[in-house]
Simulated scan of single mutants.
Amino acid sequence: MGASVGIPAVALCITRRLYQIASVKTVSISQSGKRRAALIDALICVLFPLVYIALQYIVQGHRFNIYEQIGCYPALYNSLPMYLLSTMCPPLLGLVAAAYGVLALRAFLRRHAAYAQRLSASPGLTASRYLRLIALASTLLTVPLGALAIYLNLTASLVGPWRSLADTHFMFRRVEQFPAILWRGNHLLVIALEFTRWASPACALIFFGFFGFAVEARRSH
């Protein structure tokens, strides 16, 4: 569950930093500025996912589900609060990251002549790597994938009414098990489970595709 917001949070931090690099008016950055930037990144990438995971308890119907051939899966009660606290967060982070990405690319194109000097203040960052980072953050597709997750939740099962926290947590300690012959009969549920299963490995492959075949990576090999 943390990865569902952790990945778009990382994309947000990447595009935000790239925008700051492209739009900053001075080449040098003070130590306090570096510490402040690192603190903001930590709040976005570490604290926010932790708070997000803690808030899932509100809409957690019971401990967890076990799907045969998949494993453990969070048991969130499909209701309006679930969309507000859970499924809406990744696409919202993706929208903010996309906005920063557009601003970073625009700043890069408008100030390309002076950009080489600014890159010297960021060791290891070249123009090629800068553009690849923007492309990487955009290719993670957090907005359309988040929208797909919302659609699957709306269609794979019925949206129930929210009555109270006590009602949602009734018999909270139970663990429900679903044989593969049952859950594989629901086409939309299969898509939802397999999507969750392969999203993180797909992001890892995308990252390697952008940087594993780069000139500097091949040179180090």
Results as ranks from 00 to 15, higher is better:
2 G>E: 07
3 A>F: 05
7 I>C: 00
7 I>L: 01
9 A>I: 01
11 A>I: 00
17 R>F: 01
17 R>A: 00
19 Y>Q: 06
21 I>W: 05
24 V>F: 09
24 V>P: 02
26 T>F: 09
29 I>S: 15
31 Q>L: 04
33 G>E: 06
34 K>W: 08
35 R>H: 05
38 A>M: 06
42 A>P: 05
44 I>T: 08
48 F>K: 04
48 F>L: 15
51 V>L: 13
54 A>G: 14
55 L>M: 15
58 I>H: 13
60 Q>M: 11
60 Q>S: 15
62 H>F: 09
63 R>K: 14
63 R>F: 05
64 F>S: 04
65 N>D: 15
65 N>V: 06
65 N>M: 11
65 N>T: 08
68 E>M: 07
72 C>K: 10
75 A>Y: 08
75 A>M: 03
75 A>W: 04
78 N>C: 08
82 M>Q: 14
82 M>V: 04
88 M>V: 07
88 M>E: 00
90 P>T: 03
90 P>N: 02
92 L>S: 14
92 L>N: 05
92 L>T: 09
94 G>M: 01
96 V>H: 05
99 A>I: 07
100 Y>V: 02
102 V>I: 11
108 F>L: 10
108 F>K: 06
108 F>P: 02
110 R>V: 06
112 H>L: 05
112 H>R: 15
118 R>E: 03
124 G>E: 04
125 L>Y: 06
132 R>G: 01
133 L>P: 03
133 L>W: 03
133 L>I: 02
135 A>Y: 06
136 L>R: 01
137 A>C: 07
138 S>M: 12
138 S>P: 04
139 T>W: 12
140 L>Q: 03
140 L>C: 07
144 P>L: 01
148 L>W: 12
149 A>P: 04
150 I>V: 13
152 L>Y: 12
153 N>G: 13
153 N>H: 13
153 N>M: 11
153 N>L: 11
153 N>V: 05
154 L>V: 06
158 L>C: 07
161 P>V: 00
161 P>L: 00
163 R>I: 11
163 R>M: 07
164 S>M: 06
165 L>H: 09
166 A>Q: 09
169 H>W: 14
171 M>G: 06
174 R>F: 04
175 V>T: 12
176 E>H: 09
179 P>E: 01
181 I>P: 15
181 I>H: 15
185 G>H: 12
189 L>Y: 02
192 A>F: 09
195 F>Q: 13
201 P>D: 04
206 I>F: 03
209 G>I: 04
212 G>M: 00
213 F>A: 10
217 A>E: 04
218 R>Q: 09
221 H>F: 06
